[in-house]
């Protein structure tokens, strides 16, 4: 029986990673870039798009090959596919969105080592059909992006006083003594904000670490 594209099962594949199966806050993957790229909302958005693209395409390709990959070289093949995809996206960015590629810098290349990409390849793409794998890639990418943009929102807001480049804190507030919180732009701010967001997210989804 062929399930429709918008069947409840398929919708679940996309919706789950946004909440209860969120790759960052629940599965603790992909943290590196969640901290590094989140000083401004625009870089967070571009990174999300790149990760969604890499995840969905790599999941699909690996799923297509899943019955033919020899077990011994499994990880290397997966990584080669991911690395190639990232190279291609990097080249495209350098050609068509030069300023963005400069902003992302080495962090675009580090999508290759983004645990989410390899994690989903192993955990999902190797055992499921290409269609589902594609949706899973999109879902996880969006789940990742949600947290990323949330962190970036707070860091940009408190660190620069702007949202997506638009100045929110008025000049008047600055004149009356308000100052941007420099710590938000530096690394400790990233850690704190992410920690608090994970706390909020886990409280909402009621997922607890059994330590």
């Amino acid at each position: 029986m062929k399930l429709g594209l918008f069947s409840s099962k398929n919708k679940k594949i996309i919706k789950d990673p946004l909440m209860g199966e969120n790759p960052i806050s629940i599965h603790v993957l992909g943290i590196c870039s969640a901290l590094a790229i989140t000083t401004k909302i625009d870089t967070a958005i571009v990174m999300t798009i790149a990760v969604v693209a890499v995840l969905s395409i790599s999941n699909t390709v690996i799923s297509l090959l899943r019955n033919n990959i020899p077990n011994k070289v499994r990880i290397i093949i997966q990584m080669s596919v991911v690395a190639s995809l990232v190279i291609i996206i990097d080249q495209i960015l350098m050609a068509y969105m030069y300023d963005m590629s400069k902003l992302l810098g080495v962090f675009l290349g580090l999508i290759i080592t983004n645990c989410i990409v390899l994690g989903r390849a192993e955990a999902f793409a190797m055992q499921n059909s290409p269609g589902k794998a594609f949706l899973d890639g999109i879902g996880n990418g969006l789940g990742y992006g949600t947290i990323l943009i949330a962190v970036a929102f707070f860091r940009e807001m408190f660190g620069f006083g702007s949202i997506y480049g638009a100045q929110i804190i008025s000049d008047q507030m600055y004149l009356s003594g308000y100052e941007n919180n420099g710590l938000m732009i530096l690394s400790p701010g990233a850690f704190f904000i992410l920690g608090l967001i994970v706390w909020a997210h886990r409280s909402y989804t009621k997922v607890i670490d059994k330590e």
């Binding site: 090959l65 033919n68 020899p70 070289v73 093949i77 080669s80 190639s84 190279i87 291609i88």
Partner: peptide
């Protein structure tokens, strides 16, 4: 089979990357 598979994948990926670049 492993060697052939790996070589084919390497060549295909290499071609795609080089072409794009």
């Amino acid at each position: 089979y492993t060697i052939i598979f790996t070589s084919v994948v390497t060549i295909v990926l290499g071609l795609v990357i080089s072409f794009t670049a």
